[in-house]
Design a protein around this nucleic acid. Structure first.
Lengths: 244, 244
DNA sequence: TCTTGTAAGGTTGTCTGATAACTTTATATG
DNA sequence: CATATAAAGTTATCAGACAACCTTACAAGA
């Protein structure tokens, strides 16, 4: 297959998305203040030169983002900030080193805390799941994408073992973004090395969780993340309490 | 004003939101696999017993969340996970103690780490902003909502001082949810006490940041969060490294 | 004069039906 | 076998109508 590596052709965004983006910008850039009423659907349809259905779909999107709330018979209103239910991270430049570093820095305290809580709360099913992911990791030496998937699965299992629904939600969201950035940077050679070396580090985390030692679990996770950062040539600020 | 303290009447969610929630659950709970095609709009409309417009608005919402992508003439597909740009926390029952506890538990490592990074990276403008929020906090003794706002502002200023764009994004998102839950729980009397006592704790954080001592900043934040939890009658697992 | 009830007007929510635009599959032609 | 065209199916958009709700104005009764 000697075909040039063409980019996927970008489909033009359809009308509701474009209109939602424009209205959304008016709100986030403060030209429509929180609590202020939007123009009526009829007027928006006329202004944008589209049908009312398209306006309604755009408003459905904004409502979903929490930027707008609608009241039947009254109108649509820009929300106060606290109404928003979504946290968005835009797909930025995957090779942006600073963004990568900052996201990694954010992940660290969460993963360390997750390890500690997992050591306290884990069930035997959680432990079995951790072992499964370790097994996948071992078999993933040759396939770097599989290595990433197995690593993600390990961390997700760990966060699940906290018995706190928010940890898997947040750590997975962040971890997957970090993995995407690694893949996009095409550091394939680095990844192979990472997969081979980190198995022992993952096992150390698993073992600390298995014996229910939160301090040791946190230390193992900290060590793993510092080593991983070093392998990715990331300069991190001193971690909590240093390495002890 | 001796009117009883009525709750705001909850409006029932309308159809597109309910349908989007159901389809979204099918996807996030794995019953519709990533890459799999959804039923046609016509079939979904028949199945749910609604008009096609309602289905389209629901799909517009899901599309906005990145859970679904649509191709004209083909159909709607559940996305691969990496397409998703949003992290959602549903407005659950504000008085759900477990959810509150779990969210607070999630917040702790982030705030501690933010304090440490702020001590390293803060500018003089950051410090001025921290002082502003402390001043607001002092003037907020009588008004508990203002106390919450001032507290949120303090923590946001601290997260901003990390010079890592993700910390304010995540900590504010979580903190605002926690504050909403507190307000909904109507712990007004508790809040007044909180505001008075926590000023000293906030000042300790500020001072550690001002002298650029990340270890002391983390300790001060840890102490503050533990005390706040105690005031809210939250039983937390041992924090990282205990109190030293 | 004040309170309650009703009507009118306006706006969102949902429905129905149609056509445009696009994709896929089947069939015909060279 | 390759290419072109037609048919079928699906999403995208349009238009119009009615339902449900909200706000305001006005009338009637105490």
């Amino acid at each position: 297959m000697a075909v040039a590596d063409f980019n996927q052709i970008r489909r033009s965004e359809h009308l509701p998305a474009r209109i939602a983006a424009q209205i959304g910008r008016e709100i986030t850039e403060g030209r429509i203040a929180a609590g202020e009423k939007l123009p009526t659907e009829h007027l928006l349809a006329k202004t944008f030169g589209v049908s009312r259905s398209v306006v309604r779909e755009a408003i459905a999107q904004l409502r979903n983002e929490g930027l707008v709330e609608t009241r039947q018979g009254v109108g649509a209103f820009a929300t106060e900030f606290e109404r928003r239910q979504s946290l968005r991270i835009e797909h930025g430049d995957p090779t942006d080193q600073l963004a990568f570093h900052n996201l990694y820095q954010l992940r660290i305290p969460l993963e360390i805390e997750a390890a500690g809580l997992a050591a306290i709360h884990r069930t035997s099913a959680d432990l079995a799941r951790l072992d499964e992911t370790l097994e996948q990791m071992t078999g993933a030496e040759k396939w770097t994408e599989q290595g990433i998937v197995a690593d993600l699965a390990f961390h997700r299992a760990l966060a699940t073992a906290t018995q706190n629904e928010y940890f898997p939600l947040f750590t997975s969201f962040i971890a997957e973004r970090i993995s995407l950035a690694i893949q996009a940077a095409r550091a394939k050679a680095v990844l192979e090395e990472i997969v081979e070396v980190t198995i022992a580090e993952h096992v150390a985390i698993r073992d600390a969780v298995a014996i229910g030692d939160p301090v040791k679990a946190r230390q193992a996770m900290r060590h793993h993340l510092i080593q991983a950062a070093a392998r990715l040539d990331l300069a991190l600020e001193t971690l909590q309490g240093e390495i002890s």
